[in-house]
Design a protein around this nucleic acid. Sequence first.
DNA 1: GACGCGTATGTCGCATCTGACATATCATCG
DNA 2: CGATGATATGTCAGATGCGACATACGCGTC
Lengths: 105, 105
Amino acid sequence: MDKTKRTRLEAAGWRVGDTADFLELTPEEAAFVELKLALADYLRDLRVKNGWSQTHVARVLGSSQSRVAKMEAADASVSVDLLVKSLLALGASRKQVGQVIARAA
Amino acid sequence: MDKTKRTRLEAAGWRVGDTADFLELTPEEAAFVELKLALADYLRDLRVKNGWSQTHVARVLGSSQSRVAKMEAADASVSVDLLVKSLLALGASRKQVGQVIARAA
DNA sequence: GACGCGTATGTCGCATCTGACATATCATCG
DNA sequence: CGATGATATGTCAGATGCGACATACGCGTC
């Protein structure tokens, strides 16, 4: 596994080495986490591409800068619900969201 | 608007005619609800196609029959998180989930 | 160095979601 | 007509997610 990805997974709150051995996710769990990471990356792309700060995005979404940071980090405390709602609120289409999710890992 | 769809939206807990006037959703809200309905429909298709009962699916998911019923109804009390996790757990691929979401309304 | 700006991380009170249970509805079969 | 199985609806206590705040880190500019 890619070291960067592993770090991100840990950051996302997924017990990596909880029991001193290595990442052990069922295929569904893995697919779910990757799906979430993909949405998080897309959110960051969208924001950066438009030259927005996290604070600005937070205002648009009616949220806070810290939550936007956590969204982009795919933190364990953010749901797919929040990511999807946020992307739609920032102008992404349902179709685009679907494509981001469908894109093979 | 299609009468059936309106009924489903009401069932899903979306204030339809709350103030005696008609459904008033921002475009993002509408897209989000439709996205949720699409996932719910797909869950039902997947279950019926395989000849599973809601009770059986509930056992597989580690949940209850009532929650499966609510998922298929896109009840306001079920999140996209739960729908996506359930679909993946029932064997749908990340790609399939994405396609369901991307499919234009 | 000190400031400003953007981002990251930890925590908390409150709101929402979840599984479970009870119960209702509705077929189908004897 | 029971009786059985599948699905729907309402409720609740406990779990999880949310916005907000504080604070820390990095990086330019002065």
